[in-house]
Every structure is written in structure tokens, then in C-alpha cells.
Simulated assay, not measured.
Amino acid sequence: MNEVQMKCETTIGTIFISATSDYITRIFWTKAPVSFVSLDSRTKEAILIKKAKKQIDEYLAGKRKEFDLPIFYEGTTFQKEVWRELCNIPYGKTINYSELAIKVKRPKAVRAVGSANGKNPLSIVVPCHRVIGKSGELSGYAGGVKIKEALLKLEGLK
């Protein structure tokens, strides 16, 4: 699958958005292992990346609560189960890793769920930031705990 990546500035930090001609495939806070390509602004990939960036900007401005993007993620069957479940956590709500493990029908796999959550390739759009520690602490986030805290604050939490 050929994908391209663009660096995008947001109000809370730099993200990198990757796309194929059909899907948004990655949204990372740090450089993802994909080559930068100079895109004609009319290519399908550039159009999708611009659409994703626009929706992320709307979310960060408090004007969007859900994303409407064609997404595709590669991972194990288990990781995909976890990532699908992340999409079911409503805006403005959090769950803890134990609750997420129960939702994917693996109540004893809390650490594996945490690992899958940490490998989420579509930050913000697949809302892994809505998963917190059992005692309410903000545990790891690919963009850093300060960004996780900012995203939760944006959603009326923390």
C-alpha cells in the first residue's frame, strides 16, 4: 500500500498525517516511518490529508465531536478489536484500561489492551486519549501526557 505523509501544525502541536489514495492510515504526533512526498494539492492523498487536517482543526476548536473520514489501520486482530472499541467511547467520556479489556471480552488482558491502545495509528480520530488509568491518572500517550490532558480538557474532562 503506497502512502504519503504531510506535516501539519495544530493548535496543540505538530502532527503527521499519512494517506493512501483511499484512506487516512496514520495520524502521529511524531514523525512516522513514511517518506515525505511533495504532493500536488489535487492528488487524492492530499485531498484526504487536507480533509483530515480540517476535521482535526474543527475538533480542536470545539466545533466537531465526531470524525467523518475513511480510515484504514493495519494491526493484529486483537489490536483492531481494541481500536474499534476505542471508536465507541463517546466524546466527553473516559474509560479505564480494565473497562476497555472487558469491552473487548478479555478482562484479564489489561496490559495487552494498554499496549494495543498505545499502538493506535490514528491518534485523535481513534480516541485512545479517552482511556485513563483505573485511579483516574493520565497514563501514557504518544503525544505526551500534556497533549492527552489538553484533549480531555477540550472535551470537558480533567
Rank of each mutant, 00 (worst) to 15 (best):
residue 134 K to P: 13
residue 109 A to V: 07
residue 30 T to H: 13
residue 14 T to R: 02
residue 82 V to H: 04
residue 131 V to N: 03
residue 24 I to K: 01
residue 12 I to S: 02
residue 18 S to V: 05
residue 95 I to L: 07
residue 64 R to N: 07
residue 12 I to A: 04
residue 25 T to A: 07
residue 102 I to K: 15
residue 30 T to S: 14
residue 124 I to D: 02
residue 127 P to E: 04
residue 41 S to R: 02
residue 57 D to M: 03
residue 120 N to H: 01
residue 32 A to R: 07
residue 38 S to A: 13
residue 66 E to D: 14
residue 110 V to Q: 10
residue 80 K to L: 15
residue 60 L to C: 08
residue 92 G to H: 01
residue 53 K to D: 11
residue 108 K to P: 07
residue 124 I to R: 03
residue 91 Y to N: 06
residue 41 S to Q: 12
residue 21 S to A: 14
residue 108 K to V: 11
residue 98 S to E: 12
residue 90 P to L: 08
residue 69 L to F: 07
residue 77 T to Q: 12
residue 73 Y to T: 13
residue 76 T to Q: 02
residue 120 N to S: 03
residue 37 V to W: 04
residue 123 S to F: 10
residue 18 S to A: 12
residue 114 G to C: 08
residue 23 Y to L: 09
residue 98 S to F: 10
residue 113 V to E: 04
residue 105 K to T: 11
residue 30 T to R: 11
residue 51 K to L: 11
residue 125 V to Y: 03
residue 32 A to I: 06
residue 95 I to H: 06
residue 98 S to M: 09
residue 114 G to R: 02
residue 66 E to S: 13
residue 130 R to S: 05
residue 63 K to N: 14
residue 84 R to N: 15
residue 22 D to V: 06
residue 132 I to W: 07
residue 91 Y to H: 05
residue 81 E to P: 09
residue 130 R to F: 01
